[in-house]
Measured scan of single mutants.
Amino acid sequence: FYCSMCNVGAGEEMEFRQHLESKQHK
């Protein structure tokens, strides 16, 4: 899983979902 807007990668879907819901996500 990879967030191109934030340049952030996650190994698991749960981690990626937490990123999308976090304040760090743009």
Rank of each mutant, 00 (worst) to 15 (best):
F1T: 06
F1S: 06
F1N: 10
F1G: 04
F1W: 10
F1L: 09
F1P: 00
F1V: 04
F1H: 05
Y2R: 01
Y2P: 00
Y2C: 03
Y2W: 07
Y2S: 03
Y2T: 12
Y2H: 11
Y2L: 06
Y2K: 11
Y2E: 01
Y2M: 03
C3H: 14
C3G: 04
C3R: 01
C3P: 00
C3Y: 01
C3S: 02
C3M: 00
C3Q: 03
S4F: 03
S4V: 03
S4D: 15
S4Y: 04
S4L: 01
S4P: 05
S4E: 09
S4N: 14
S4C: 01
S4I: 01
S4R: 13
S4H: 12
M5R: 09
M5E: 12
M5C: 03
M5W: 04
M5H: 09
M5P: 14
M5S: 04
M5V: 14
C6R: 02
C6L: 01
C6E: 08
C6D: 01
C6V: 04
C6Y: 00
C6W: 01
C6I: 02
C6T: 00
C6A: 06
N7V: 13
N7T: 10
N7S: 13
N7K: 15
N7Q: 14
N7D: 07
N7F: 07
V8E: 11
V8K: 15
V8C: 15
V8G: 06
V8R: 13
V8D: 07
V8I: 11
V8T: 14
V8L: 14
V8P: 12
G9E: 15
G9Y: 13
G9A: 12
G9T: 14
G9N: 15
G9S: 14
G9C: 05
G9M: 11
G9R: 15
G9F: 10
G9I: 11
G9W: 03
A10T: 12
A10K: 00
A10L: 11
A10C: 11
A10V: 10
A10W: 15
A10R: 04
A10D: 08
A10N: 09
A10F: 15
A10G: 07
G11D: 14
G11L: 09
G11S: 13
G11T: 12
G11H: 08
G11R: 09
G11I: 03
E12I: 10
E12K: 10
E12Y: 05
E12S: 12
E12Q: 06
E12A: 10
E12V: 08
E12P: 10
E12R: 08
E12C: 06
E12H: 00
E12L: 09
E13H: 08
E13L: 05
E13T: 06
E13Q: 04
E13P: 07
E13W: 03
E13M: 11
E13G: 10
E13Y: 02
E13C: 01
E13N: 03
M14W: 05
M14G: 12
M14H: 12
M14R: 09
M14V: 08
M14D: 09
M14I: 08
M14C: 00
E15L: 06
E15Y: 05
E15N: 05
E15D: 15
E15T: 04
E15F: 02
E15G: 06
F16N: 09
F16G: 06
F16T: 05
F16V: 05
F16E: 08
F16R: 06
F16M: 03
F16K: 10
F16H: 10
F16S: 11
F16W: 13
F16P: 08
R17E: 11
R17Y: 05
R17W: 04
R17Q: 15
R17K: 14
R17G: 09
R17F: 11
R17H: 10
R17D: 13
Q18V: 06
Q18Y: 06
Q18E: 15
Q18D: 13
Q18G: 08
Q18I: 09
Q18P: 06
Q18C: 02
Q18M: 09
Q18L: 08
Q18T: 10
Q18A: 07
Q18S: 09
Q18N: 11
H19D: 03
H19E: 03
H19N: 05
H19P: 02
H19F: 00
H19L: 01
H19I: 02
L20H: 13
L20G: 06
L20T: 11
L20I: 14
L20C: 13
L20F: 09
L20K: 10
L20S: 05
L20R: 10
L20V: 10
L20A: 07
L20Q: 12
E21P: 01
E21K: 02
E21N: 08
E21Y: 07
E21M: 04
E21I: 03
E21G: 11
E21D: 07
E21R: 02
E21Q: 08
E21H: 08
S22D: 11
S22M: 01
S22Y: 00
S22F: 03
S22K: 01
S22Q: 02
S22I: 01
S22G: 09
K23M: 15
K23P: 11
K23Q: 15
K23W: 05
K23H: 08
K23T: 12
K23D: 14
Q24W: 12
Q24P: 12
Q24A: 13
Q24E: 06
Q24M: 09
Q24C: 08
Q24H: 07
Q24R: 06
H25M: 00
H25L: 02
H25R: 01
H25C: 08
H25T: 04
H25D: 06
H25F: 04
K26N: 07
K26E: 09
K26D: 09
K26S: 12
K26I: 12
K26Q: 09
K26G: 14
K26R: 15
K26V: 13
